[in-house]
Structure formats: C-alpha cells, structure tokens
C-alpha cells in the first residue's frame, strides 16, 4: 500500500519536474523583448479595457504611448489628467491636459412629448430598428429607446428610464469613454465638458426638420428659431439645419438661453431653482 503511494509521488514529481524544465526552455526560446516601460505604463492605467482611447484595450494603449514617444494624441478618458500625467512621468514626456467630459443624451422626446406613431416589432436593438426605418415616432432624429447605448456601456453608467423611455447617464459613473456615442445610430450622445456640481445646459434635440414638422412630431423639439443664438453673449450657440447647438467649451452656464426657448428644448440640469421664473422652465429641469 505505502509503496504504491511512494511510487505515485515519485512518478508525479518526475513528470512535474520534466514539464517545468521543458516549459522553461520553451519560454526562453519564444521570449520577445518588450520595453519594460510598457508594463509600467499599463500599471498606471485604469485597466478598464474600454477602448475609449481608440486602442484595443489598456495594453495596446500603453504600447502606443511607449512607441509614439509623444503624448499629444493620446489620452485616456477614464483615468483623465491625473492618470495621463502619471504616464507622462514614467515616460518623461509632456501630457496634454483635457477637460473632463461626460456623456449627454440630446433627446428629450419622452413618450409624453413625442407620441408613438408605429410599433416596432423586430429584434429590439437600435441598430436594427434604425436601419429598417425612421423609428416609432414621427421624429426621425430622436431616440429609438432600445438601449444599444446601455448594452455597450462597460461602466454601468447609462440606464433606460422606463417612464420616459429615454436613456439617462449617471454622471459619477460615466468615464466618457465614448462607447455609447459610437453605439447610438441616431448620434444623439455627445461628450460634453463636465462642469462643477454636474451642471449642464444643452439642447436636448437633434431634429433637423423645419420647425412646424419638428414640433408636430415632438412638443419639445428644437425648431431652429435662433432665439437662443441671439440671447447668448458668449457665442456658444450655433444654428445649423434648423437645429441649435450649444458648444460646451464656450458655454458659461448663464442660463439665459433656457428661458427664451419657446419649446423648452434647452435643458438645464442640477441648478438651484430660479427665483423669479415661470414654472415651465423648472419642469424641464431633469435630475439625473
């Protein structure tokens, strides 16, 4: 009995040792030289592997950083400035500073504002629905509501609100990797500058139809009336194709445009209630 155990142990150890030796030599033979800094840079990265930098995962980004020898075109949106300065420190390079960004969904066409005019009955993804037709409402630019953005988010930062039928971004979780921006076939999601206290002002509409038509499809559509453009003292608003756009890099959060918009298409978020304002503007304040 005991002799059996001894034999077993001996045999197994022998096999183990032999394999270890073989593996060692194989590993030696196939070893490729890798810049040790790649590992260092990779360690400094958040390790989310989200692809937000435009590279296939953190390792690829680290390789790119080491290879390029210049960080001006490389930025990790997840780690942000802090992480990039760390990377720059390792490589002895200069990192560009970027304002932190956050994803914003530019559609406020809730079920209430934008009535359904058809029922989609196919595989429920936005990509399939949008390649088939314009969508369940009369607004061909608006949110389809099947949540491709939600599926694609690695950070659990975007959710469908079952009441409005629209996706909502959780600002604290959003790392601005841009996956949802890519996923949205209607190009509704934009990475906008992050302001203190998560405040934002933006045109929650992408409808490029003429005013009447846009309004007919959705009560809160931008009709391109350009009142906001005239109101803005900082040149942050431009109108193109019957649609207003607020450049978050120029916006100073003065909130003047919000009150002039006749359709409440401009949304302000996380501001204290106004003192002498009519109620309608408050009702558009979305708490995200």
């Amino acid at each position: 009995m005991s002799i059996t155990i001894v034999y077993t142990v001996i045999t197994l150890s022998a096999i183990g040792t032999l394999s270890a030796v073989v593996l060692y030599f194989v590993a030696q033979k196939f070893k490729v030289y890798e810049d040790p800094r790649i590992d260092q840079v990779e360690a400094a990265l958040p390790g989310a592997n989200c692809g937000g930098c435009g590279h296939a995962g953190c390792r690829a980004f680290a390789e790119a950083c080491v290879k390029e020898n210049d960080l001006s075109n490389l930025f990790c949106p997840v780690g942000g400035n802090e992480c990039m300065s760390g990377v720059a420190g390792i490589l002895g390079l200069e990192a560009v500073k970027k304002d932190p960004r956050v994803a914003v969904v530019r559609c406020n066409g809730t079920c209430e504002y934008r009535p359904k005019t058809s029922n989609f009955d196919g595989a429920t993804t936005c990509a399939i629905a949008s390649s088939l037709y314009s969508g369940e409402t009369d607004c061909q630019y608006g949110c389809l509501g099947f949540g491709d953005c939600v599926v694609v988010c690695d950070f659990d930062a975007i959710h469908m609100n079952p009441v409005t039928g629209l996706p909502e971004v959780i600002d604290e979780k959003c790392v601005a990797c841009g996956a949802c921006v890519e996923a949205c076939p209607k190009m509704l999601i934009e990475l906008r500058k992050k302001f203190p206290k998560e405040r934002k002002i933006y045109v929650a509409c992408r409808n490029e139809d003429k005013g009447g038509q846009a309004r007919k499809a959705c009560q809160v559509a931008c009709i391109g009336c350009s009142k906001c453009e005239k109101e803005c003292a900082y040149d942050a608003i431009t109108i193109a194709n019957n649609l207003a756009f607020i450049d978050s890099d120029k916006c100073k959060l003065c909130r003047k445009c919000v009150s002039v918009c006749p359709t409440n298409a401009i949304i302000e978020v996380n501001f204290p209630p106004r003192k002498i304002q009519k109620e309608t503007t408050e009702s558009t304040t979305v708490n995200q």
């Binding site: 196919g122 595989a123 993804t125 990509a127 399939i128 390649s131």
Partner: peptide, 12 residues
C-alpha cells in the same frame, strides 16, 4: 427567432 434581423445587421 429574428434570424434575418440580425443577419442583415451583420451583413451591413
């Protein structure tokens, strides 16, 4: 199953 729905997507 919505086979063709997805296949069309894949084709695209």
């Amino acid at each position: 199953r919505p086979l063709l729905d997805y296949i069309r997507l894949g084709k695209g």
